[in-house]
Design a protein around this nucleic acid. Sequence first.
RNA 1: GCCCAUGUAGUCCAACGGCAGAGACAGAGGACUUAAAAUCCUUCCAGUGGCGGUUCGAAUCCGCCCAUGGGCACCA
Length: 850
Amino acid sequence: MNTALIPPYTPSSLEADWQKTWFDNNVFEAHVNPEKQPFYVLEMLPYPSGQLHMGHVRNYTLGDVLARFKRAQGFNVMHPMGWDSFGLPAENAAIKRGIHPGTWTLENIAEMKAVMKKFGWSYDWSKEVTTCLPSYYGHQQALFLDFFAKGLVYKKEALVNWDPIDQTVLANEQVVDGKGWRSGAPVERKLLSQWFLKITHYADALLDDLTTLPGWPDRVKTMQVNWIGKSQGMKFDFTVQDEAGAALDPLTVFSTRPDTLYGATFCAVAPEHPLAKKAAETSPEIAAFIAEASRMGTAQEIIDRAEKKGALTPYVAIHPLTGDKLPIFVANFVLMTYGTGAIMAVPAHDERDHAFATKYNLPITPVVSLPEGHDITAAPYTGDGEVVNSPLFNGKQVDEAIATAIAKAEAEGWGEGQTQYRLRDWGVGRQRYWGCPIPFIHCPDCGVVPVPRDQLPVKLPEDCAFDGAGNPLDKHPTWKHVDCPSCGAKAERETDTMDTFMDSSWYFLRYLCPEADEPLDKTAMDYWMKGGVNQYIGGIEHAVLHLLYSRFFVKALRDMGKLPCGEPFAALLCQGMLIGNSYQKADGTYVYPSQVVWKDGKAFEKDTGEALTVLAAEKISKSKNNGDSPDELLARYGADTLRLFMLFTAPPERDLEWSEQAIDGAWRFLGRVWTLAHKVAAADALQSAPNEALNRKIHQTILRVTKDIERFHYNTMVAACMELMNDLNRAAEEGLSDTVKFGAETLVRLLNPAVPHITEHLWQVLGHTDPLYAAPWPVADEAAAQEDEITLVVQVNGKVRGKLVVPADISAEDALAMAKALDEVQPWIEGKALKKELYVPGRLVTLAVA
RNA sequence: GCCCAUGUAGUCCAACGGCAGAGACAGAGGACUUAAAAUCCUUCCAGUGGCGGUUCGAAUCCGCCCAUGGGCACCA
């Protein structure tokens, strides 16, 4: 056929047509159907910033390949999408631009959804969930009351970042260099009464059940294990004396290393500890230090990186074993939220204690034998070893000494063994407007009263003032004033809203029953969630918090009889980020990659010719312009090319570097497939002579692609298709045959999950009237895929010395015999004793000689 | 600071502990074209961040170091 007769590939109209067909026929709508096996593919729902970015495109394309593949395999696939639409940015937009958070958010959703639909992702949009609508958050309030009824909700004091000018609580990201982002005032740590969810009730289950998740990456499980931070230690008391020698309340400390008890040279308490407060009453220095420490903010990173500082109290702690008097400090690195808020410090064997002791010239006493050459004044030793200088434990290993210490303390009644977790209860209250209202009412007589269920949802008022000071809900003139549901007296609504992590902890359940009157429909849960979400896909940045909170939610809901499973996500794929070079002009502004031309290895702006500075690849962001917007790229290349680029350029879990050139490569490949399919379709007569080698390649490719999709090697899946296409083109040069046609059809079917629009079209070009979305996945003929000859490598002492072409089913004996007989191998083994010989089937023969 | 990853041709990436190369980009040469674009063909290119260890054999496993990235509880 004359290639000039092949119509041009114009994705825009073709893609729109197929999207309409899918939509008109409700192709991706999923319903409970006990006859069919369910498969739930879930991608992390986006925050509707208004701009779909390429990171989203990658995430959703990864999920779509799997969803379409599983559909072709006959599964009943659930593949929903929604909006994580509460949160700070909407409220910031309200403060800055005077636009209502709800208006801003819903407009953003409309914009993003319009772009998303152009990518051809196979979502069942009838399941869409928008977390900022009362139809969603009302059910969340109902669940919150269920948690309350189960004793999983409580209030306690907690530290927050407080902006003294704006009279408001700040998020960590709103604290810039220790100052409020708007007011510039130094931030203070403040204790406020806060709502908590008792996630620690499930600490052991959250830890132990990780072993039931083989489909999760090990690194994520490790991060969760470390986050939960279960440790065995000892809680014990120091007797405390004031400067006059009078006894005060004992000081209870927790230590994971009671084996180092004899190495304790001082004690330290958190700035918020009662003993610190007591000392501050009589000492202005200590009061000043506590005030200084309180300006540090609540972020762990800040606390860890800050210089270790303290103030000496006039009190001493009596060492329970030696009777020594240890000084007690108030120290900025001791956390009120971990253990008892007080520590025994062993500078020889703890990093922080060491830094502190060095600064204040406190003694450093090693009690675990040090490795050769270790200078204890320069660095602590935190490893294992034999305990020394400890009358009670000498000669024991660390773990034995720990057991001995606990036994002794328990026998004498001054301490006890205790399991400690790093995991803290989840503070869910936020003093902000744009979140789900916490459904409680404060009554002066009845206390905290839940809002009756028939009064849910508690809706956000529309008419709030957003000036960045205080909590808009609290300042609203009427909203919070209600009658007590219990006694009818005048009472006040809770004005805290919920952490947005609450919204994302159960959205994947609501997708399954978005219209249900109850939060969770039992039939839907039992069908879709029997084994949890089959595959969850999202960014690694959620490896700890979101995933841990969702796991907690699901366990709690299961225990309330609402769910058939105890883990939300059976399998997890964490994708890498999108990164890209940024291009900077002399005036410091940034230029989009599409506006860059390269000459002699240097970058210039297309329109002006101005030379550009190329900056190292980093996370794609709006401020750096280092990624083109999906809209523009869609118009230039179409969805299929962008999808293919995302899949091919890097494996899913790795960072993906932005490259205009790689997109061109994806475009060219689709063009070649297009041409091949048209050539095959237009051939008048096909040669029927079978091409065995090509046929084998086709079946091998089916096997490879199927396996690659199942293990998420999407980049190699595309490479396998490219290989097949190269072979088909070569074969087509020699004449179009039945085998080439079968190959082209197979190629189109295998590529369908990745590039659904062009393949649907080409399937029709190839003469099929049934749509591909309803076609089953190709099945390989294993026998036809079998190679009959293989090449074996012969190694002697690990070095390749010869090669053998042998039948694929050769026995180990024959392979070894032939290898030893090879002319190239003989010189290397002649006259030497054979230590070891090995046949690795299908691969190589290895011979080890003395 | 603590926890978790990643590092292979000029570039992006392949490689059950078994010949470092599947695929692509860029480069070079050629075909087609009045020319260019597009397209097609051919071709070039690394010893796997560094040091040490385990092994018959290490990109792959272990240890230390370097660089880069993610998370650190009120960003989502």
